[in-house]
Simulated assay, not measured.
Amino acid sequence: MSAVPLVVDVRGDRVVATLNRPEVRNAIDRETAAALHDLCALLEDHPRTLLLSGAGGHFAAGADIAQLRERGRDDALRGINSSAFDRLRRLPMPSIALMDGFALGGGAELAYACDFRLATPRVRIGNPETGLGILASAGGTWRLRELVPEGLAKEMLLTGRLLDGEAALAAGLVNELVEPDDLVAAGHRWADRIAQQVPLAVRLTKAAFHLPRSAHPYVDDLAQAVLFETDEKEARMTAFLEGRGRR
């Protein structure tokens, strides 16, 4: 068995984290959920873009069924997976799921909590929970319908339909489809694009995006007021104007 359920590599403006239980297709157990909380604490204290992938050719084949079978009411109310995924969703900087192989059940819900999803053609994404007598309680019942049309979300949740890479791309669930050997490089390419933006502008834009409609436009004006006073705004706009003048 893998000694470390989540391998974390800090690289300047980004963190590369790899689910590391390949012997069980990276099934998410209590230790993995705890490691995800630790990862979130790191990224809350030192905001960076997150690239999240899985070892051994799979993203995550769901929650660990051996543990899940033993859980009762009190375990469900603790939100073992849902609390970790929700914390990941609220990270200051963007998160990018790199999906290959299985992304099922809790694994799919972990990907839904990320801001972007890149995948390979051989990925299989879905929520088979109802076939096991439970529901997709770590975000599937509400995040999925925010990402794909309602009819497709219900089909995945109520019939257990799995999407391959092409279907996920067509539905808008996946942002880009790449070959397995190019998946990590594609993630870094997305992180490079984010790194070209002003970090505080990215953080405030992400925060504003996820607020309820009732918070707008007040929150946008407030965030803009903060950004208007930054040296980076002045420098970037001056460079833009001077560059346009040289054309």
Rank of each mutant, 00 (worst) to 15 (best):
D181C: 10
L162G: 11
V4F: 01
A66V: 09
V16H: 10
G126H: 05
R25Q: 04
G133E: 01
L118K: 01
R124S: 02
S83N: 13
L158Y: 13
G54S: 06
R25D: 07
A239G: 13
L227A: 03
R246S: 06
S214N: 02
P128I: 13
R30W: 09
P47N: 04
A66S: 11
V15P: 02
A185V: 02
M93V: 00
L36S: 00
G105C: 15
L43I: 01
A103Q: 02
A17K: 01
L200W: 06
G139N: 00
D29R: 10
G101H: 08
R161K: 14
E150C: 12
R89V: 03
D231C: 05
F240S: 01
S83R: 15
W190K: 06
H216M: 11
E31I: 04
R21H: 09
R145W: 14
R117N: 12
A170Q: 15
P212N: 07
A136H: 07
G107I: 13
K233I: 08
L158M: 15
G160L: 07
S83F: 05
F228T: 12
L163W: 02
R236D: 01
W190M: 07
D75Q: 12
P128Q: 13
P212H: 03
F59T: 05
V219C: 05
E44H: 09
I80M: 09
T49Q: 05
K154P: 10
P149T: 08
M237S: 07
A108T: 07
F116I: 03
E146Q: 14
V174A: 10
A17M: 02
F209K: 13
D182I: 06
R14H: 08
G107A: 01
L162P: 01
L204A: 08
L98M: 03
A239Q: 07
K206D: 10
R90W: 15
A35I: 00
M1Q: 11
A3P: 04
E129W: 05
E155I: 13
S82M: 14
A63M: 12
G56M: 11
E44C: 08
G172I: 03
A201G: 08
L91E: 09
L222S: 11
D74A: 14
F85K: 04
L211D: 04
V123I: 12
D29K: 05
A34F: 04
Y218E: 08
L241M: 12
A225H: 10
V8I: 15
G56N: 01
Q197F: 10
D38I: 00
R78M: 08
